[in-house]
């Protein structure tokens, strides 16, 4: 479980987050939504210790993040940033780098690291791509490899910043299924999503962010009962109960 308690953070002297608090529970998907520049990515960076923050505190499974080394944080939280380089290495090597936080100098991957990376690739269905170069893969496949890397990290929490960007609609749905399975396996998942319908469909909790503050938090149904989507985006989202569960649509 990740708990953020009344923190403020920003870039240099510019404060983006102002006294923000939120909680992401174990085995649940928590999604941050909000317009561009509202502070969602900044919040992710703050909880990963990528930018300095002040105020209350951030804990992962009760452990305070402040004072942890970068490698320690990586062992608790796996992070998939938004704008990722496409490195000129194989998918197998990319996944193996997920074991990096567990190495000490001189950092050499051990037999057990190779086994864990292979298992992570198998779980993501990309084991057969291990020898392929990352640049040769489609956006969806590449994203699966990044997720395999996150799995190889064996962190109890995974944080993803707009993971469905560059994916077509079919790949987005497949990706959503994978995320669901990961949360069902007990991982704490925190997402930033711009696709509101997808966020409503897959999330257990949604936190609406505006001007560096969480202005509303709740389950998708609770969020829909408020006027928050209109406030954030100027749109109305409705739901309808079908045989396949609740479906969401823009009005």
């Amino acid at each position: 479980m990740i708990e953020v308690n009344n923190i403020s953070a920003g870039y240099g002297k510019k404060e983006i987050l102002q006294g923000i608090s939120f909680k992401a529970e174990e085995g649940k998907i928590t999604t941050l939504v909000g317009s561009n520049g509202s502070g969602k990515s900044t919040l992710l960076k703050a909880l990963l210790g990528l930018i300095p923050w002040s105020g209350g505190g951030i804990t992962v499974d009760g452990m305070p993040v402040k004072g942890m080394s970068r490698a320690e944080i990586a062992r608790w939280i796996a992070y998939l940033p938004q704008g990722k380089n496409v490195p000129d290495i194989s998918a197998g090597r990319m996944t193996l780098h997920g074991r990096f936080p567990y190495l000490s100098y001189p950092r050499r991957y051990r037999e057990s690291d190779f086994r864990i990376a292979e298992e992570a690739m198998r779980q993501m269905g990309v084991l057969e791509l291990a020898d392929r170069q990352m640049a040769e893969l489609s956006g969806g496949m590449r994203q699966k490899v990044y997720l395999a890397m996150a799995l190889a990290q064996q962190a109890p929490a995974i944080v993803m910043d707009e993971p469905t960007t560059y994916l077509d609609i079919g790949q987005q749905f497949k990706f959503a299924e994978i995320i669901k399975k990961l949360s069902e396996s007990g991982k704490t998942i925190v997402l930033v999503l711009h696709d509101i319908l997808l966020a409503l469909k897959i999330s257990d909790h949604i936190a609406a962010v505006r001007d560096g503050k969480i202005i509303q938090c709740g389950t998708p149904e609770e969020i829909l009962k408020t006027d928050i989507m209109r406030e954030l985006y100027g749109i109305t989202v409705k739901s309808v109960r079908t045989e396949k569960g609740i479906q969401y649509y823009y009005e």
Partner: peptide, 13 residues
């Protein structure tokens, strides 16, 4: 070479 954020995400300063 993986990029700043990915590298930080897997524990490298």
């Amino acid at each position: 070479a993986l990029g700043d954020e990915t590298a930080k995400g897997i524990g490298l300063p």
